[in-house]
């Protein structure tokens, strides 16, 4: 499937804009995080990780929501393009879930005194991560690519519906055991911090869009290459 010149041109143009916007946005985000917002009195510098942490989990949930919707659309009317979009968003989701878990650990070590604790939110995020790693592995396990895409769509739907149920069960489970963590009050964040959080979420969304478009494009190129090889041999 060759791209027409015009289509390719429009695609390049959008990608360029997204790429530049992400770059500038990220630099501004760094300035906001490290210079504009005040230093948190109790937690100190490590609190800065919080902005990246929140924006990452936002991207992860956004990605998995899109996987869910596109999976439904795929089962309704299958197309290779829908599958590529779903897979790209799942990959972005898994990457940002990983960033969420890692940035959370970095924050937890000085604040809670441990990298990992079986807190409800941590546990359900870990399970979320596992479900979507399996989702990404699934296609490779199935011989017929069309069947693999269909199976991935099924897991994309079941997995997403499962997430709130998992979260609920883990939260109830934790209430039985005394929570080892001293809850930090998030009520009195200064306005500058909230603006920075919102700004980071927007920039990270643009970054996710950029990554997904690149990922889909690479997949398309790869498939064109395979097509060319088979027709020429």
């Amino acid at each position: 499937m060759a791209l027409s010149k015009n289509e390719g041109g429009a695609r390049r143009w959008i990608d360029d804009v997204l790429g530049v916007a992400t770059l500038i946005g990220m630099v501004v985000a760094l300035w906001l995080i490290f210079i504009y917002t005040p230093m948190e009195l109790v937690q100190g510098a490590v609190q800065k990780v919080f902005y990246i942490h929140l924006a990452s989990i936002w991207n992860a949930y956004l990605g998995f929501l899109i996987v869910f919707v596109v999976s439904i659309l795929y089962l309704w009317r299958p197309s290779a393009r829908k599958d590529r979009i779903a897979r790209a968003w799942a990959e972005v989701g898994v990457v940002f879930t990983t960033i969420t878990l890692v940035s959370g650990s970095i924050w937890a070590k000085p604040i809670w005194g441990t990298y990992w604790t079986w807190d409800a939110r941590l546990t359900s995020t870990l399970i979320l991560w596992i479900i979507y790693v399996v989702y990404l592995m699934l296609r490779g396990f199935v011989g017929d690519p069309e069947r693999g895409r269909r199976y991935a769509a099924i897991v994309g739907i079941i997995g997403f519906i499962d997430v709130p149920i998992v979260h609920m069960s883990v939260r109830w489970w934790r209430t039985l055991h005394p929570d080892p963590i001293v809850a930090t009050s998030e009520a009195a964040l200064p306005a500058s911090m909230w603006y920075t959080v919102l700004y980071c979420i927007v920039v990270f969304t643009v970054l996710a869009l950029f990554l997904v478009r690149q990922r889909v494009h690479i997949d398309e190129l790869r498939e064109t290459l395979v097509d060319l090889r088979t027709t020429s041999s």
């Binding site: 399970i127 596992i130 479900i131 399996v134 592995m137 699934l138 396990f141 199935v142 011989g143 069947r147 199976y151 099924i154 897991v155 079941i158 997995g159 499962d162 149920i165 998992v166 609920m168 069960s169 883990v170 109830w172 489970w173 039985l176």
Partner: peptide, 29 residues
């Protein structure tokens, strides 16, 4: 789904264990 995969039954735990976490927790509790 696992029966149609290369890994056969080996794929089943990967799909079933993370998704049935609420069942395991609920039933145990």
């Amino acid at each position: 789904m696992a029966a149609h995969s290369r890994a056969r039954e080996a794929l089943l735990p990967l799909l079933l264990l993370p998704t049935t976490v609420p069942i395991i927790i609920g039933a145990v509790q």
